[in-house]
């Protein structure tokens, strides 16, 4: 439970549209940085890693719909640029069979790629400092997932005014409603108080579940990294030995 696969129809239009915009922007910059030839050569690898993430998302570990993401280990194996494209592909495939919404592919990609990109950099940093595989992988995964969970909470909190509108929608007239702005409240102080109470409840549910998820994913990613190190250490591209 490091993140929620946000469904369609929950977030305001301006928020998910911004998600798409930022995603395209980052994707275009990364694509320029890597170069078309390199992406093309590594497409099958990207496809396989993305497929492994899709499979990971399909295997429930415990009965609270928790599944492994494998984003951090994929980030370590693919590198920070390709993992972005891989998470985009994963989110599109997952959205195509109802696991996360289509309108929120941009936001889900941004949240999930934070795990892969930060996981890669945290791992490289911790490895350089400690030269020990287990603590480096576990800490990198734990920290990356924690940041991604808080990003998800941040994204959800940005849409609070929209939820208020939906909650009070039964008193409004008409069938349709398209809100492109943030939806300013008439009484900001009162509104802020309401939002805070609601968000606190949401955070109180998500964070403890997330914490279990960070630990589980951390342990599983560490064990996977150790397994890969035993069989194909070259894939981890480590400088020096391991302890």
């Amino acid at each position: 439970m490091s993140h929620i696969h946000l469904p369609d129809g929950v977030l305001p239009v301006w928020l998910w549209a911004s998600g798409y915009f930022v995603m395209v922007l980052i994707g275009a910059v990364l694509f320029r940085l890597i170069g078309k030839g390199d992406v093309s050569r590594r497409l099958p690898l990207l496809g396989m890693m993305a497929a492994a993430m899709v499979l990971g998302a399909a295997v429930e570990i415990i009965p609270i719909a928790y599944h492994v993401n494998l984003t951090v280990i994929s980030g370590i194996l693919l590198g920070p640029s390709l993992i972005f494209l891989a998470t985009l592909v994963v989110n599109v495939i997952l959205a195509l069979f109802g696991h996360g919404g289509i309108t929120v592919i941009g936001l889900n990609t941004l949240i999930l790629s934070i795990e892969g990109i930060l996981g890669y950099y945290f791992f490289k940093l911790l490895w350089r400092v400690s030269k020990r595989l287990t603590p480096a992988v576990f800490s990198a995964t734990f920290l990356a997932l924690m940041v991604s969970t808080f990003s998800m909470i941040g994204v959800v909190s940005l849409g609070t005014a929209h939820y208020e509108e939906l909650i009070h929608g039964e008193h409004q007239h008409g069938i349709f409603g398209l809100e492109l702005s943030g939806g300013k409240a008439d009484h900001p102080e009162k509104e802020m108080n309401k939002e805070e109470i609601n968000l606190k409840r949401f955070i109180a549910i998500v964070l403890p579940l997330g914490f279990i998820g960070w630990i589980l994913e951390g342990v599983i990613t560490t064990l996977i990294a150790r397994y890969i190190y035993r069989i194909r250490p070259d894939l981890l591209k480590l400088e020096g030995g391991v302890s």
Binding site: L45, M48, I61, I73, V219, I220, L223, I224, Y227, L235
Partner: peptide
Amino acid sequence: LINISNAFGHLLIKGIDNSEKMYESM
């Protein structure tokens, strides 16, 4: 947990090997 992790590790390594073969054949 060890069994699940080994299974995913095996899956990743096999996947990477397969991706190299797939690229060559493509």
